[in-house]
Amino acid sequence: MMTEETHREAPSKHEPIEMILARLLFVGSVIAAILLAVGIGAMLLGHGDVASRLVTIGLVALMATPIMRVLTAGLIFVREKDWLFALFCLVVLCALAVGILLGHAHVE
């Protein structure tokens, strides 16, 4: 998965945010892909109940990934004392939370 990393920027004391988020999204999509694939396999073998449960967990993992990504980015900005960007993440999280609580989907 790692690509050539010779073109890094000047080293900072922390790992760059892109690499941390890339790892998070990678782990999220691999977990989702495995659960979906196993679930679909179970479906083909006729284990409908197990299949449906596995696929559902896989879909939930995938849905949680972008939200975790905003949360993680916010925590990274807090660690770097980049308060303005931490606040931006908080605004986004609040908008998402309100949207979910109101039950308004963005497509009707």
């Binding site: 696929v55 879909l59 972008p66 939200i67 949207g99 963005h106």
Partner: peptide
């Protein structure tokens, strides 16, 4: 990110058919 908030709502409504 925007899609995720929509998806959570659909999921809660039971519109997501896993199969």
């Amino acid at each position: 990110v925007t899609a995720a908030s929509g998806a959570v709502v659909y999921f809660a409504r039971g519109d997501v058919k896993p199969l």
